[in-house]
Amino acid sequence: MDETALIALALQMRERAYAPYSGYRVGAALLSASGRVFTGCNVENAVYPLGLCAERVAVFKAISEGERTFITIVVATENGGTPCGACRQVLSEFAADLRILLVDARGQVRETSLRALLPEPFGPQDLRSVR
């Protein structure tokens, strides 16, 4: 799938977000190495910690469908914001070199990478050292 189509999907998913508390709607489109695309939107809850970010929704959908390798994620927000720390950590479990496209509500796109946003992630190697 091309970049333009991924961006359009993320923007579409942003419209589906359930964000009555923060008003900060987020959509995501995650491209796997096999070419499949998994989408997500943020889902808030009155008990705030029970909500889930769009990026993790997309990752968990992909994992549940058997995908484990990812190339690009597009994250659509009002202001082109980056993934939160929890999403960065989850993404790093599967794609340390992930390409990230951030798109705002006007369609402006900025490119970054997971390594730039999370240069020293906690990972399986850290668990092995304590055994």
Rank of each mutant, 00 (worst) to 15 (best):
T72A: 01
S92R: 05
L91Q: 07
P124I: 00
I100V: 10
R106W: 01
P119G: 03
A62M: 09
V75R: 07
Q108M: 06
R115E: 11
D97A: 00
S64V: 06
V43C: 11
V59T: 01
Q125E: 13
E65A: 15
L102S: 05
K61E: 15
V90C: 10
A58H: 00
N45K: 10
L102Q: 09
E93K: 13
T112H: 05
E120C: 04
G66N: 09
L91C: 11
K61Y: 12
A105V: 14
L127Q: 07
L52A: 04
V74R: 03
A58N: 00
A46W: 09
L50N: 12
I73M: 04
T69L: 10
E65T: 11
G51K: 03
E120D: 13
F122L: 11
A76T: 11
V59Q: 01
E78L: 14
V37W: 03
V109H: 02
L114Y: 00
R115C: 02
L52T: 08
A54K: 01
E120I: 06
Y48A: 15
A62E: 07
D126L: 05
S64D: 14
A76K: 04
T69V: 13
F94L: 09
Y48L: 14
V130K: 06
V57M: 11
F70Y: 08
A116M: 04
I73G: 08
L118Q: 04
A95D: 09
V47P: 04
E78S: 13
V43I: 15
I71K: 15
N42W: 06
A54H: 00
T82N: 12
E93A: 14
I63P: 03
E67M: 09
T39V: 15
E78Y: 07
V74W: 06
Q125C: 01
I73T: 12
T69F: 09
G80S: 09
E78V: 13
G123A: 08
A86T: 12
T69A: 15
I71F: 03
E67P: 09
E120Y: 06
E65K: 14
E55A: 14
G85H: 08
R128Q: 07
C41Q: 14
R99I: 06
V103W: 01
R106G: 08
T69Q: 15
I100E: 08
R106H: 12
N45G: 09
A76S: 12
Q125N: 04
R68F: 04
V47W: 02
N45Q: 12
S113F: 02
P49V: 03
A46P: 15
G66K: 09
C87V: 02
R128P: 00
R99G: 02
R106F: 05
Q108I: 07
L52H: 00
N45Y: 01
L102W: 02
P83I: 05
E65I: 04
R128W: 01
A95L: 09
V75Q: 07
G81W: 05
L101C: 05
F122I: 10
P49R: 00
C41V: 04
E120L: 02
T72M: 01
